[in-house]
Amino acid sequence: MSSREDILGRVRASLHRNAGNAATAREVMAAALANRNPGPQPAVASEPRALLERFRVKSEQASSTVEIVATEAEVPAAIAKYLAAMSLPTTAVAWASLGALDWAGAGLSVEARGARDADLVGITGCFCAVAETGTLMMTSSPDTPAAVSLLPETHIAVVRAARIVAYMEDAWNLARDELGSLPRAVNFISGPSRTGDIEQTIVLGAHGPYRVHLVIVEG
């Protein structure tokens, strides 16, 4: 007997599985799988200004830094200013989805490709953002590779204010509507990588980025 059959067989025996109770259980399962009602959620005000403000506050609590700009055209200059203020390199890897921005005009050298170990700055967008916890939702695709938000020491994410939702459950519904099925990787990111494994002292930059900077585009 295969291990699969052995394990499932013992589970079935423990549950006294038979054709009758299997049919009932399958109905219960189908209902559970179709249920889109969220569980209890903490209150999050849903008007756009409040969502943006909550997202900003929660992101900062997660040790991200936040800047708000009016239009997407202002993004390259805002990022150039941040990099200069932090004495960081002006060369970066970015998602192809951001390739159309005028990076060179802001004095930045930005390549749209997958990330390599030597990349020090990674610039990404995000699929959406969750106000409840100050979280970015990244969905992987050829144009939005996962490693750009992971390998570089600095991760900069461009967030459109209109894409800030209240809860993670809203993000799932957006993904179902817009992507159909889940992509290979959904990464929720809340601040820089960290560890507390030595004496429970929090240190930023364990294996991923040391710093996460968010540029929120209002328009």
Partner: peptide
């Protein structure tokens, strides 16, 4: 676990990389 509202990374991984993808 750690008293965090959410962990820094929360990944939901589904299937394998497509040929045209950079990573995975």
């Amino acid at each position: 676990a750690t008293g965090q509202s959410i962990s820094n990374y929360f990944s939901i991984l589904t299937g394998v990389k497509k040929p045209e993808e950079h990573d995975g």
